[in-house]
Write a protein that binds this DNA or RNA. Structure first.
Lengths: 215, 215
DNA sequence: AAGGGTTTGTGCTCACAATTACAAACTTCG
DNA sequence: CGAAGTTTGTAATTGTGAGCACAAACCCTT
């Protein structure tokens, strides 16, 4: 059976809400409550989960711990994921410094750049290596995911190289519509695109004058 | 007529491809070529554009400049957009330093934080102001978009405040499912969510051993 | 143990988006 | 100018995902 990608995209949201509930010490949660928290209809949650099995109990709901474990297993979050960063300019450095990856099992284990004055530098306990050595390095110590943070004009080349190295997951921060072969999964992170579609809705109604700072 | 949000989300992609074509000196482009570049079917492009008017010419295609202008107008990209950043920790600083916003007409004009040792600091020619003064500051100089880069536990509060200040577009970097009233547009930027859904596809087929670095 | 109250899992329906397909309009070339 | 070749815009079709609604299963109280 083929599971719709939109469903897969929602599962991480569920895991996050479940983690919160777990921290709060909750044992059980209903699709109703989960839905309210996430802004999703309860039916959608139940349907999404039903693609993978029957995890709930009628009259009671879902066991938080059990469902969390199941989702981790389903998504493959029950292991560590090795990542390589390409491009350690401003953006790349920020990504290296980002503390949100490792708690979720994602580790940046290599950093590459093409600029001579960056190669050899140490950033966050990683030595920046030459992009031209990408194939060599990754053949000895493969990674699961490549993070692309190079200027737009080099991005497709870098992606091609990563693919050639067997990397099958790519997180692309460069503002291009990259092409990858079947079987390689690419996600783009582009704040600007998000803004540019948001303005469509903002432009119509004018910026309101603040009535007062009351309260 | 109500235009599907997915259509709106694709328009910025089109503008970007058209900008490239313009730089390359191209006068005219067909939906065919545009589609190949973007990985979208030509029919989809034509249909998307048809929601807004008839911009092409049979037997010829679209005038690059004209279509670009139209899309800019449609999306509201023919003006400047003022943004306020809340949270100048590691992530916030990276956002402030990001150079991809201003070329597209998005300017961060205010920065806020709640931490006393950050308030008053100057970062990139902006003085960090106290989050508690948010309402005051924005009532005098309103912004169009709020960027939220505070820890998860404070994010909803910050978003509520922004909404109260009349901000109707929010870019949320915090890992929470935020709630906003109707009429307020929220987009989340979350690399981790992207990774967590990608792993679903990566986990099945094993990490291939690199055959060789041939080529 | 029995009944009232919950909540799941899922068949069904509906809505909507993607694709197909084609007439109409334009270009180009002989 | 006419015919062959492009390409658009859209009507019609197909495909797909979201929501509804309900039977079945479970909990809890008395």
């Amino acid at each position: 059976m083929e599971i719709p990608p939109v469903v897969i995209d929602r599962l991480p949201l569920y895991t996050r809400a479940l983690s919160s509930l777990q921290t709060e010490g909750r044992d059980v949660v209903s699709s109703q409550e989960l839905g309210t928290r996430l802004g999703v209809t309860p039916a959608q949650i139940r349907k999404d989960l039903s693609y993978f099995g029957r995890f709930g109990k009628q009259g009671r709901g879902y066991n938080v711990q059990k469902l969390l474990d199941e989702l981790h297993r389903i998504l493959g979050l029950d292991r560590q994921w090795r990542m390589a960063l390409v491009g350690v300019g401003k953006l790349g450095r920020a990504i290296l410094g980002y503390e949100g990856f490792s708690p979720q099992g994602f580790r940046i284990v290599e950093a590459f750049d093409a600029s001579p004055d960056r190669i050899g530098q140490r950033i966050n306990s990683l030595i920046v290596k030459d992009t031209r050595d990408l194939e060599n390095v990754l053949s000895k110590a493969p990674v699961d995911v490549g993070i692309v943070a190079v200027p737009a004009e080099f991005a497709q080349d870098v992606i091609d190289t990563l693919v050639k190295c067997g990397v099958r997951g790519i997180l692309n921060y460069a503002p291009i519509a990259a092409h990858v072969p079947d079987g390689v999964h690419l996600k783009r992170i582009e704040p600007v695109l998000a803004l540019q579609s948001m303005t469509y809705y903002l432009k119509s109604s004018p910026r309101p004058t603040i009535t007062a700072a009351r309260g």
